[in-house]
Design a binder for these strands. Structure first.
Lengths: 197, 197
DNA sequence: CGCATTAATTATCTTTTGTTAACCGCCTGG
DNA sequence: CCAGGCGGTTAACAAAAGATAATTAATGCG
C-alpha cells in the first residue's frame, strides 16, 4: 500500500487529525496479506493486534469438546477485527481467527495506538463510533436469537446479507446461526418445499 | 438526591471533569423513581433518555404476534439503560422498557449531553468505556447462544448471576435464554432429577 | 486421470423444544 | 371469605433439532 493510500484511509477515519499524529500512526501501521485458511490470531494468544480489513473475510471460531468448529463471528472488508478477549478483557484469546479468503488488513498495536493517541478527541471519537457500530450489530444478533427461530434467522440472513452467504460454506453459516449443518440442510429443504412448484 | 451525591457520582464517572462542565451536567440531570411495572420507555417512542440505574431493575421486552412478551435485555443497578434503537440507530424503539422493581434512575438527555460535552476528553473516555463494557457483555451473550444449549445457558446463569435470578420470575428468565417458560420448567426438573438422591 | 478429502444431503433414531391445555398453589382485591 | 388472575408445573402431542452414519457431489492434488 502506498503511503498516500494510508494517509487517505486515516484522514477518513480520524477526521481532523493533525499531521504529526498522522505520521506516527502511519509509521505504526502494517499492511499484511493473509492466504485463505491462514491463521491470524491463535487460540491462547494474547494479541493486541487491531486490524482494519481492506479486503477479504476473517472467521472467529471455537473448537468444542468434540472437535467441532463453531463460528462465533465473521468480519469482512471495511470492518475492524481484533481478539476481543485480549482487547476488551485483557485475557488470552479463547478463539482462533483465520482468513477464509485472500485477505488484506491494515494492522496496528492497540496499546501502542492508544498511548499514542491518548486524549486526542479525534481518536476518541473514531474509536467510540467503531465500538458503537459493533455494539449495534451485536444487539441485533442477540435479538435474532431471542426473537427468532433458526429458520427465521436463516431467512433473515438470506435477505440481509445475500452476498456474504455466497462467500461462506453452509457449515459455517449453520454454526453462526447456532445450529448444526445437518439441521441447516433440513431447513433449506423445508424452505424449498414450501415454495410454489 | 442531594447535589453532593450527584457531584460524587459524576466525579467518579468523569474523572478530571472541570467544575463548569460538572455544573452544567448536574443541571441537566434528573432523578426519577419508577414503581414496579411502571413503563420507562414505550414501544414506538423515540426516546433520547439515557439513564444510570442507581437502584432497581429494568426489563426491555418485545411483544410478538401471539401477544407473548419476550425479554430482550435486563439492566440493573450501576448500569446504563437507554432505548438502543433510538440512541444507536435513531429510530423509534421497537421495545418497551419497564421497571421490575422499585427503581431509581439518574437521567439525562443524550443529545443534550453530547452537545454539552462535545470534545471533552473526559466525557469521550467515559462513554467509550460504557459502550465497551456493554459490548463485552453482548458478545458474551452471543457466545452463549452459539456455543451452549439452553440447559447450559441456564446453568451458567445460575452460576454467574444467582442474585439476579432471585429477583426475576422464571418466565422472564426463560425468554431471556431464548426458550419458553414450559421448556425452562422441564430443564429445571431435568437438572434436579440428575442430582444425587 | 484417479484417489482422497471435504461439503452437503439424506436417513434413522433419540432428545429436546414448542404448543396447547389442564391443574395447582398463591396472592390479591372486592 | 371467595373469585379471579397469575406463575409455575405437568401432560400429551407435534415439530424441530441433535447425533450418527451412509451416500452423493465437488474439489484438489499427486
Amino acid at each position: 500500500m502506498l503511503d498516500s493510500e494510508k494517509i487517505e484511509f486515516y484522514l477518513g477515519l480520524f477526521k481532523g487529525i493533525d499531521s504529526e499524529d498522522l505520521l506516527k500512526v502511519i509509521q505504526g501501521t502494517q499492511q499484511r496479506v493473509l492466504a485463505p485458511g491462514e491463521i491470524y490470531i491463535r487460540e491462547g494468544e494474547n494479541s493486541q493486534r487491531l486490524a482494519y480489513i481492506k479486503e477479504g473475510l476473517i472467521r472467529c471460531y471455537h473448537v468444542n469438546d468434540k472437535g467441532d468448529e463453531i463460528t462465533v463471528l465473521l468480519r469482512w472488508e471495511e470492518q475492524i477485527i481484533a481478539s476481543y478477549d485480549s482487547i476488551l478483557l485483557h485475557k488470552p484469546s479463547r478463539f482462533t481467527y483465520h482468513a477464509l479468503e485472500p485477505t488484506t488488513v491494515l494492522e496496528v498495536n492497540y496499546d501502542e495506538m492508544e498511548r499514542l493517541l491518548e486524549n486526542k478527541p479525534v481518536f476518541e471519537k473514531a474509536r467510540y463510533h467503531f465500538v458503537l457500530d459493533m455494539l449495534a450489530q451485536s444487539l441485533e444478533r442477540i435479538e435474532s436469537f431471542v426473537l427468532q427461530t433458526p429458520e427465521e434467522r436463516y431467512l433473515q440472513l438470506i435477505k440481509d446479507k445475500p452476498d456474504l452467504l455466497q462467500r461462506i460454506s453452509d457449515k459455517h453459516v449453520a454454526t453462526l446461526l447456532g445450529i448444526t449443518p445437518v439441521s441447516l440442510s433440513r431447513i433449506r429443504k423445508r424452505i424449498i418445499s414450501r415454495q410454489p412448484h
